[in-house]
């Protein structure tokens, strides 16, 4: 009797250890990446790095202010295009769970989500860059919006599906019309989940490089005109790390570090919002 209990306790401990070790293993790549990027990039980071423009090869100093601003411009364009469309699509899917059109829509969104980002870049090049005869922040934003769409649609639909049916019934029973129920009851109740989805989508696209190669293209100067090429952080990483100059490699690492910090910030805010603003029923 005693022996079997001891055996069980031993098995239990063994299992706990295995789980903890495996969970730690899952974190290893992240820790590795972080230490490596910080080690290589930190030396180039100072105030100048954030407020100066890039300098030509051979000159010391310089910064990537244009790329930081450019990243925000491109992400903002993507956000403005993708959010309203995907929010309403998510609401539609959650409201019409079984209709044929919803099924078609869901399959299309899954396919869209699985299109490689480089293909989306080429499409944006053909549809926007070529007709406008110029690489531009706008075309980059459109390409990123296409990547953003499925992420927000899915998260919105799933958030709204989890709301209890009694909530809408409470609203209907007060004689509230359908559209007002959606706008004033359903969306506010799911708001934290919806915002979390949007922030995670932003974190996802902020680091996209491939689609920007054909669209935003990169620009050594500061640019606020959305119809002109613009520099972004992923492009800095790509262009500088593929260059033959040692000094530029350090800048690429530093840009990667800034990008990581931006992405982590968005992810962190998303987590905080989903915890703090969670509607309890």
């Amino acid at each position: 009797m005693m022996e079997t209990i001891n055996k069980r306790i031993f098995k239990d401990r063994l299992f706990t250890i295995i789980v903890v070790v495996l969970a730690f293993t899952a974190c290893l790549p992240l820790l590795g990446i972080l230490t490596f990027v910080i080690k290589n990039g930190l030396s180039a980071i100072n105030v100048e790095f954030f407020i100066r423009l890039p300098k030509p090869v051979g000159e010391h100093g310089g910064g990537i202010s244009n790329a930081i601003i450019g990243t925000f411009i491109v992400v903002l364009i993507a956000f403005i295009i993708a959010t309203p469309v995907s929010l309403l699509t998510g609401v539609y899917l959650s409201e019409n769970r079984k209709s044929v059109f919803s099924e078609v829509l869901r399959v299309s969104i899954d396919v869209l989500a699985s299109i490689p980002s480089i293909v989306i870049g080429i499409i944006a090049y053909l549809w926007i860059v070529k007709p406008m005869k110029s690489f531009s922040a706008l075309s980059g934003g459109c390409a990123l919006a296409m990547i953003m769409l499925p992420v927000i649609i899915k998260s919105t639909e799933e958030t709204l599906n989890m709301l209890p049916l009694t909530l809408r019934e409470a609203s209907f029973a007060l004689g509230v019309p359908y559209y007002r129920t959606i706008l004033k009851v359903i969306i506010p109740a799911g708001l934290s989940g919806i915002i979390t989805g949007i922030l995670i989508a932003i974190a996802r696209i902020a680091g996209e490089t491939a689609p920007l190669l054909f669209t935003a293209f990169g620009n050594p100067f500061m640019n606020f005109n959305i119809t002109k090429p613009v520099n972004t952080l992923p492009l800095v990483v790509f262009n500088y790390s593929t260059s033959p100059y040692e000094q530029w490699h350090t800048i690429a690492w530093a840009a990667a570090l800034v990008l990581l910090i931006i992405v982590f910030t968005f992810t962190l805010i998303a987590r905080i919002i989903s915890k703090k603003w969670k509607t309890s029923f």
Binding site: L167, A170, V176, K184
Partner: peptide, 29 residues
């Protein structure tokens, strides 16, 4: 609006205060 209803499980609006819940029929309409 003429025939009110109360459900099996209490379902106050989770995003609203007690005050707003009472007048939610007016607010939402």
């Amino acid at each position: 609006r003429k025939i009110g209803m109360v459900f099996q499980r209490p379902n106050p609006f989770p995003t609203m205060s007690i005050y707003d819940n009472v007048i939610s029929g007016f607010i939402l309409n």
